[in-house]
């Protein structure tokens, strides 16, 4: 049985402008010790999906209106706030995009690590501090013992994200959700943090959900990938399968938008920007949500019926009337 099983999750925001269908029927599962990558543009519902799993969506205006989040045999959406508190940090940990604002500026790094440990384990102050030093060493903070009483402003962005990772690991969770963990970091630091994350996931035997808009990050770390668009899953496949045979036109576009070095020459069709904008999630297109931007959408079912998520090959799912493999011979952009 999968560690986490999200079934038909719908999280809506009830705002003055109308109901925003931020997450609209998302299903996926994560097995123990595996990494699931979730990719998509900003505003596609990746982060809201993660926050929904943790029960951290801002209520109001947001509300989980349907679906289940079954984690280790329990439906987290049915748990009360106090029970959820015991799951957070202990069984599911999360790290966020911006390390500069994710740590409390007025508390020492040590306090922010030990308060997590002491919340979930019955440990003395000294034991918790000792454990905190070990954790800081594990995420490779130099002179960990002496830096425990520093405030966050003494740490660089990369180091703060390491501290966030240390906090996340502190209670040996079964699942780690990393929401754009490297986006806000310097390019040179990104790779280090990503490698560290992957290495620690392996050594701690955790499962991980890695949320990103960066296809390169996914390629490096994920086992399985889902692509989200406008609150829905549009494609799901094992990582190699997805990169080798992308089926959804949106995935193709995302991959086309990735600068790639082949041999010494930069690939010809590099950095194709995706024309248009994601749809308004208050009143999304009634049929295929990608149709307005899709080069293959014609005067057919695309604007009338919502395509189902269907399994094209074993383990490869796609939500499109015109996946690549069924389009053979048809010129790209014929109807554009």
């Amino acid at each position: 049985m999968a560690l986490l099983d999200v079934r038909d999750l719908k999280t809506h925001f009830f705002t003055r402008e109308g109901v925003v269908h931020a997450v609209d029927g998302v299903s996926f599962s994560v097995d123990r010790g595996r990494t699931l990558g979730i990719v998509g543009e900003s505003g596609c519902g990746k982060s809201v999906t993660a926050l929904s799993i943790m029960g951290l969506i801002p209520k109001p205006p947001a509300k989980i209106v349907a679906g289940e989040v079954v984690f280790d045999g329990r439906d987290l959406t049915k748990l009360g706030e106090r029970q959820l508190e015991s799951v957070r940090g202990r069984e599911i940990a999360m790290i966020f995009q911006d390390p500069m604002t994710s740590l409390n500026p007025t508390l020492t790094i040590g306090t922010q690590i030990t308060e997590t440990i002491k919340r979930h384990f019955d440990l003395s102050n000294e034991r918790a501090r000792k454990r905190a030093v070990e954790l800081l060493e594990e995420v490779r903070i130099p002179n960990a013992a002496s830096r425990l009483d520093d405030y966050p402003h003494r740490y660089s962005g990369g180091m703060r994200q390491r501290v966030m990772i240390a906090i996340a690991l502190s209670c040996n969770p079964m699942l780690l959700i990393a929401d754009e963990p490297t986006t806000a970091l310097d390019v040179t630091v990104q790779a280090q943090v990503l490698d560290l994350l992957d290495e620690l996931r392996e050594s701690h035997d955790m499962a991980m959900i890695l949320i990103t808009h960066d296809m390169g990050v996914v390629a490096e770390t994920a086992d399985e990938v889902i692509v989200m668009y406008a609150g829905q899953v549009v494609e799901q496949a094992p990582v190699l399968e997805l990169f080798d045979h992308p089926e959804h036109p949106y995935t193709e576009a995302l991959l086309g938008a990735l600068p790639q070095i082949e041999g010494e020459r930069i690939r010809e069709a590099r950095l194709t920007a995706i024309p248009g904008r994601p749809p308004d999630l208050v009143s999304p297109p009634p049929a295929c949500r990608f149709a307005p931007r899709c080069p293959h959408a014609g005067g057919d079912s695309c604007t009338e019926t919502m395509p189902e998520l269907r399994e094209l090959r074993s383990g490869h799912w796609v939500r499109s009337a015109h996946p690549t493999s069924e389009r053979a011979g048809r010129p790209v952009g014929a109807s554009a």
Binding site: S86, T116, I167
Partner: peptide, 24 residues
């Protein structure tokens, strides 16, 4: 953001409000 972090760590509401929110 750091309040969301405190929530994600599973801290009790009493501690989040009493220490993290109030102090700042």
């Amino acid at each position: 953001d750091y309040i969301r972090t405190a929530q994600a760590k599973g801290l009790r509401r009493r501690r989040i409000v009493g220490l993290h929110v109030l102090r700042n």
